[in-house]
């Protein structure tokens, strides 16, 4: 439900990083505990960037699982759909979330000019 607001914040961060250059792909790492619906975020992104300098930028979402580490036995547990927060190895409730809360703009792909034949830039 917060995909629209995240999309707006993401676009602002991308614009800062792009500094006016043409952005083609926006890479975002999203942890499962951020409760983002990928389809909803992509939908929101279309409307966020339409008619803006980011209009040609596509999202590339890297969906990361939630992982717990057990303070008692040290085992890692990947959270499944059953959504308990106990350790899968020993059953302890003393677990910490070590991954799954990311919402990070990791990289952007921008267009670059590789050089010109006649030395004029930009080409018209």
């Amino acid at each position: 439900m917060h995909e629209v607001s995240l999309s707006l914040q993401l676009a602002a961060a991308v614009s800062r990083a792009a500094r006016g250059r043409q952005v083609r792909v926006v890479y975002v790492a999203i942890g499962a505990l951020r409760q983002v619906v990928p389809e909803a975020l992509e939908h929101a992104w279309v409307f966020t960037v339409r008619g803006t300098p980011l209009g040609a930028a596509e999202l590339d979402l890297d969906l990361l699982p939630a992982v717990l580490t057990c303070d008692e036995c040290g085992a890692d547990t990947k959270l499944g759909p059953e959504l308990g927060f106990g350790c899968a190895a020993c059953g302890s409730a003393a677990t910490r979330v070590v991954s799954g809360e990311q919402f990070t703009l990791t990289a952007i792909d921008i267009d670059i000019e590789k050089g010109t034949c006649d030395g004029t830039f930009p080409p018209t």
Partner: peptide
């Protein structure tokens, strides 16, 4: 006469 490419930042 010119080439474009992509760069990842």
């Amino acid at each position: 006469g010119y080439a474009t490419g992509r760069e990842r930042i």
